[in-house]
Design a protein around this nucleic acid. Structure first.
Lengths: 189, 189
DNA sequence: GTGGTAAACGGACGCGGGTCCGGTTATGCT
DNA sequence: AGCATAACCGGACCCGCGTCCGTTTACCAC
């Protein structure tokens, strides 16, 4: 995002877009009109698209810090809980985070599958999951060799189908299924 | 869909919309312009929306027969394979079907979560999965009590994240995860 | 056959997505 | 300080979505 220093005017426009978008997303959800965001930020819509080529790029930038907090939670959970409970807790936080940002689930696919991963969102989420999987495998409760990227994609799928408010019970059950899927053989509930 | 007999003109319009849409979806994917579909069918766009209130309603109607074929495949697979392999095979067919219809994955959420389920698409898919799960439970290879709706939603999630052409390897791995999730305890590969 | 009317129609309309081009401005060099 | 120009700008534009209202038509009762 900062591979070349922006001119002063561009930097100001970008920051204004981010802060206006954060308020608009919180108020109206991530599907809010980008024309209205541009207008409220005092820039043309072409400027918005220049800085953030897609809606998901804008959303990803707006929520970058909160994704960092979520990723950091993996190590914290491991200090407080056993690895299987930490993994469950982290997954629930992931889905809750998405549900709390209205319309976020719709944007997940491009974010998780983008080639560029400009803000390293996918890489960071995957690393958090890998931390949890590694601890679980070391403790003998998670199958060794489970691919963290596969788990991230599966969790993304769960979120895409069950990541809206009001779907928490379904999300929990699908997380259960996923946890069964990564569990070491021979374990029973 | 036929809760009240349509007037002759309306029935003709609906049939023409379905056949034009089937060709347009096959050629351009399910995100093709509905305005163009209406125009090619010789009807106004308001007419299209009257018959099919949403894009997914049109898609669901166009592919109704193929969904039936997919649902019928569950019993066929059970006659040819053991229950675990039949379940895997059926899931792979589901994802392949979605991948073959460009843009289908984007429409899955409303179809699977709609309250109305007017064409019983969700109910029929769920019944197919229940058939496979029941056979697996009876054979001792699937955990008893796994909810067919949960499995359908999980498979929907897999399809939403990995249901495009070129993603078959990822889809297969996610299906593996899901199958591990429903497997009876104590079984190893 | 005729008349009434509910069913059904077409397309204009407002809206927002995303593009693109003529105009503006910040920056670096002399 | 002045100049050149690449970076950056705003908003007009085309497009399609989804809505809605005046018009048309099929159907039913007499």
């Amino acid at each position: 995002m900062t591979e070349r220093p922006l001119r002063a005017d561009a930097r100001g426009n970008q920051e204004r877009l981010l802060s206006v978008a954060a308020v608009a997303f919180a108020r109206d959800g991530t599907q809010t009109s980008l024309k209205a965001v541009a207008k409220e930020a005092g820039v043309g819509v072409g400027t918005l698209y220049r800085h953030f080529p897609t809606r998901e790029a804008l959303v990803e930038a707006v929520y970058e810090h909160e994704v960092t907090v979520l990723c950091d939670a993996a190590a914290e959970l491991l200090r407080a809980l056993g690895p299987a409970d930490a993994l469950r807790g982290w997954m629930e936080r992931f889905v809750d985070f998405m549900a709390a940002k209205h319309g976020m689930a719709d944007l997940l696919r491009p974010v998780l599958l983008s080639e560029a991963d400009r803000l390293h969102t996918r890489a960071r989420l995957r690393a958090a999951i890998a931390t949890l999987l590694d601890a679980g495998a070391a403790a003998g409760v998670i199958r060794p060799g489970v691919d963290a990227n596969d788990v991230l994609m599966a969790l993304g799928g769960v979120t895409m189908i069950a990541g809206e408010e009001g779907q928490r019970a379904l999300a929990t059950r699908l997380i259960d299924l996923l946890l069964h899927g990564v569990r070491a053989p021979g374990l029973t509930s």
